[in-house]
Computed example of a mutant assay.
Amino acid sequence: MYQNYTMTIYCHYNNDVGNTWYYVSAYPYWTKGWIYSRNVTAHSVIQQCW
């Protein structure tokens, strides 16, 4: 992931130690995966992953 790239955040997950992770797909190939919440800026409310 590079700075200022576009991504879609689908949901978030809080692990056992209190860290929040986002499940995303990212430009340019829209590959899906997890990214630590402090590494991105989210601009809307994100639902919890189930």
Results as ranks from 00 to 15, higher is better:
W34G: 15
Y13E: 08
W21L: 14
Y36I: 10
Y10C: 03
G18F: 02
C11I: 11
G33M: 04
C49R: 12
W21G: 05
N19G: 05
A42T: 10
M7Y: 03
Y29H: 07
Y29T: 00
T20A: 11
I9E: 03
A42K: 06
M7E: 02
I35T: 03
S25P: 03
N15P: 01
T31Q: 03
T8W: 07
I35G: 04
G33V: 06
Y29R: 06
G18T: 10
P28A: 12
I46N: 00
H12N: 09
N4Y: 04
G33R: 02
N14T: 15
W34S: 13
Q3G: 13
M7D: 00
D16V: 10
W21D: 02
V17T: 14
N19L: 08
V24D: 01
I35L: 05
Y27R: 06
Y2W: 02
A26V: 03
A26W: 01
S37N: 09
V17S: 12
V24S: 01
I46C: 05
Y29M: 02
Y22F: 13
H12W: 10
H43F: 04
V40C: 08
M7W: 00
H12T: 00
N39F: 09
T31E: 12
Y29A: 03
N19W: 11
Y5D: 08
W30G: 05
S44L: 04
I35F: 00
T31W: 13
V40H: 01
A26L: 02
M7L: 15
K32T: 15
Y22W: 07
H12C: 01
Y5P: 00
N39E: 13
D16I: 11
I35S: 03
Y22A: 03
C11A: 11
S44W: 12
T6D: 10
Y22L: 09
P28W: 07
H12M: 06
I9A: 13
C11K: 12
C11M: 14
C49F: 07
W21M: 04
Y10Q: 04
V24Q: 01
T20I: 15
V24R: 02
S25G: 11
Q3M: 05
T20C: 08
S25Q: 07
G18V: 14
T6H: 12
Q3S: 12
Y29I: 02
N14D: 14
N14C: 15
T8Y: 13
I35D: 02
C49P: 01
S37I: 00
W21V: 01
Y36A: 14
T20H: 07
T6C: 07
M7V: 01
Q47G: 14
Y29K: 05
D16L: 12
Y29G: 03
W21T: 06
N14H: 08
S44K: 14
I35V: 14
